[in-house]
Simulated assay, not measured.
Amino acid sequence: MENARELLAAERRQAIRRLASLTGDFEQVVEAAYDANADDEHDPEGATIAFERSQVAALVQQVQGQLTEVEAALDRLSAGSYGICEVCGQPIPEARLQARPTARTCVECAS
């Protein structure tokens, strides 16, 4: 299980780095919008800026969800329930946990 803690810590660090990068990207898009014409309907760049802002916001939300999953897995690890399927109660195969350290279910229950 110590390997699991290392995998989860690495995944957490990666998510935090990605979130910091995306936040910087979002700030750049917002800054670009300040320099652009505020009339998106008639500005050919307006739709692009709005799309980019929406896309970055969606990515930020996705990474925040991933970070929440990592935190939940760390909580399960501390509680002693990590690696136990939340549906059937059987152990989650080590290969699945290696591939997806935040897994809450075994392969059979996931499908």
Rank of each mutant, 00 (worst) to 15 (best):
M1C: 12
E2V: 06
E2S: 13
E2T: 14
N3F: 13
N3D: 15
N3H: 14
R5L: 11
R5H: 11
E6S: 13
E6H: 12
L7M: 12
L8E: 10
L8P: 02
A9T: 15
A9D: 11
A10K: 12
A10Q: 14
E11A: 12
R12M: 09
R12H: 11
A15K: 02
A15S: 13
I16S: 02
R17A: 13
R18T: 14
L19N: 03
L19T: 05
L19S: 08
A20G: 11
L22E: 05
G24P: 07
G24F: 06
G24C: 06
D25G: 04
D25K: 12
F26P: 00
F26C: 03
E27N: 15
V30G: 05
V30R: 15
V30N: 07
E31W: 02
E31M: 10
A32Q: 10
A32F: 01
A33H: 00
A33E: 12
D35N: 11
D35R: 15
A36R: 02
A36F: 01
N37G: 04
D40R: 11
D40C: 03
E41D: 13
E41L: 05
E45L: 04
E45R: 09
G46C: 04
G46T: 07
G46S: 08
A47S: 09
A47G: 13
I49V: 10
A50L: 10
A50M: 04
F51H: 05
F51T: 06
E52V: 05
R53T: 05
R53P: 01
S54W: 02
S54L: 06
Q55S: 12
Q55R: 14
Q55M: 08
A57H: 05
A58Y: 00
A58T: 07
L59R: 12
L59Y: 07
V60C: 02
V60F: 00
V60I: 15
Q62R: 15
Q64F: 03
G65W: 11
G65Y: 06
G65L: 10
Q66G: 09
Q66W: 08
L67R: 13
L67A: 08
L67H: 10
T68D: 14
T68C: 08
E69P: 01
E71I: 14
E71H: 09
E71T: 15
A72F: 01
A72L: 09
A72D: 13
A73V: 13
A73R: 10
L74F: 13
D75W: 12
D75T: 14
R76Q: 04
R76S: 05
S78R: 15
S78D: 15
A79L: 14
A79P: 02
G80F: 05
S81T: 15
S81E: 13
G83D: 03
G83T: 00
I84M: 05
I84H: 03
I84P: 01
C85I: 08
E86A: 04
E86G: 03
E86I: 08
C88L: 07
G89Y: 02
G89W: 01
G89P: 02
E94G: 00
A95N: 08
R96D: 01
R96A: 05
L97H: 01
Q98H: 06
Q98T: 09
A99Q: 01
A99T: 00
P101E: 03
T102K: 03
A103L: 04
R104S: 07
R104L: 06
R104D: 03
R104M: 03
R104W: 02
T105P: 00
T105E: 03
C106Y: 04
V107W: 05
V107S: 09
E108L: 11
C109Q: 09
C109M: 10
C109K: 06
A110I: 06
A110H: 06
S111P: 00
